[in-house]
Computed example of a mutant assay.
Amino acid sequence: MREYVFGTGLIGAATSGMTLLRSLRAQEPFTWRTVLAWVSWGITVALVVGAVIDTRDAKRGRIVSGDSPVSGREQKLLKKRLRR
């Protein structure tokens, strides 16, 4: 569980989300740039969650899709998990 919680993608998404929340409290006008920042943050969070799910599935021996960052390393991750 540690490797998921302390992953750089999740930490980056959390800090950028906090920055966006602070900008809402600062009474700044809500412009198209703010909308793009929120959309970008949502995409980042979705990619991080997808990578975590794919890594967990690969470690359990399941096949992941070809566009996953862990595609092709399923056997290596499964062997590493089984050694523990």
Rank of each mutant, 00 (worst) to 15 (best):
D54R: 02
E3I: 14
V52T: 05
A37K: 05
G42R: 03
S23R: 15
L78E: 09
E3V: 12
S71R: 09
L78I: 07
R84P: 01
M18Y: 12
A13G: 14
S71I: 11
S16Y: 03
Q75E: 08
L20N: 12
V48R: 02
T19M: 15
P69A: 11
T31L: 00
V39Q: 05
A26L: 09
R56P: 04
I53W: 00
F6D: 10
E28H: 07
S71G: 09
S68Y: 02
G9Q: 01
S16Q: 15
S40Y: 01
V49L: 04
P29A: 11
S23F: 13
A14I: 14
T8V: 13
G66R: 13
A14C: 13
G7Y: 11
K79R: 09
V5E: 10
G72K: 06
V5D: 10
P29S: 11
S68A: 01
I11L: 15
S40W: 00
A46M: 03
F6H: 14
L78K: 09
L77T: 00
K59P: 04
Q75R: 03
V49K: 01
S65C: 06
A58Q: 00
L24C: 09
R81F: 06
K79N: 11
I63Q: 12
G72H: 08
V39D: 05
G61T: 01
Y4T: 14
D54V: 02
T8S: 10
W32S: 09
K76T: 07
R25Y: 06
V5M: 05
R25G: 06
G9T: 03
G12A: 13
